[in-house]
Amino acid sequence: MAKSGKVAIVTGSATGLGASCAIDLAERGWNVAINYTKSKKEADETYEAVKAKGVEAILVQADMGQDADCKKLAAETLKKWDRIDGLVNNAGTTKFQNQGDLDGVTPEDFDRILRVNVTGPYMMSRAVFPTMKKQWEEKQERGSIVNISSIAGVMGVGSSIPYACSKGALNTLTLTLARWFSPSARVNTVCPGFIQTRWLLGGMGEENYNKLKQSQEQTAPLRQAGTPEQMAEAVMFFLTSASNITGEFLIVDAGIHLASLPMKAR
């Protein structure tokens, strides 16, 4: 793949969906700023995988729940390449908690999850927007921002109540930013369902993870459990291809949101 000269930041890109997005962008010739908070070893591996595609990369440790760190990530990307064309707001957190256990969720849980999952994408988008605006005004080159939400933000179910609330709020943030960032940048959201990741396995435990995976494979209309690579395909659609789309959500869950509705024999 020939180098495109374009630059993207992918937050939380040490593992899972973030890593898949970084590698997919590199395969398309994009230079990539890889971000991590704690997973240095895995981030190094993603960095090497991106570099192996023949593009440039930087590795930046930054906490997406901190405004100063969001600004640092944008500044280091600009220092390296003097442009930012894309942003994938992938970094997120949760508390794995039975939604029926209302006493198991504290105000501190809400504060932490909302800060990383909602305020973080806002702060990161704010940090890159002046550059995207300048590129649009000077070169008619439009930026693209993709937020990683969740089916939890659409259906109201997920790893915890704060998590579902945060993803619903992220969907609303997408609409707001899409209005205010136009025409300089497009802003869209991907809402994954079940994804086969180490993060989900670690949070749920092996037994519950395997049960959910099996259920997905048996009940989803497409009869499959999603992979990070499949989710990255949807992100790439919004980030690199959908030039006339902004303010939209795309559910990527093998059709599981349809499973409770009557369906034709299959």
Rank of each mutant, 00 (worst) to 15 (best):
K3P: 05
K3N: 10
A8W: 09
A8K: 10
A14R: 05
T15F: 09
G16D: 00
C21I: 14
L25Y: 08
W30G: 00
N31S: 14
S39F: 07
K40P: 04
D44P: 07
D44L: 14
Y47C: 11
Y47I: 01
A52K: 15
G54I: 10
V55H: 02
E56R: 01
I58T: 12
Q61E: 13
A62P: 03
D63T: 08
G65S: 13
K71S: 10
K71G: 05
K72E: 03
K72F: 01
A75T: 12
E76L: 14
E76H: 03
D85T: 07
N89A: 03
G100R: 12
T106G: 07
F110V: 14
N117S: 05
T119S: 14
G120V: 00
E138W: 00
S150V: 05
A152F: 09
A152T: 04
P162H: 00
Y163R: 07
C165K: 02
C165G: 01
S166F: 00
L173E: 10
T176Q: 11
S182H: 02
A185N: 11
C191E: 11
I195P: 03
T197H: 08
W199I: 15
G203S: 00
N208K: 13
Y209F: 15
K211N: 08
K211Y: 00
Q218T: 10
P221N: 03
A225P: 11
A232S: 13
T240W: 08
A242S: 15
S243C: 12
I245G: 01
T246Y: 08
T246W: 03
E248C: 11
L250S: 01
V252C: 07
D253L: 09
A259F: 14
R266G: 15
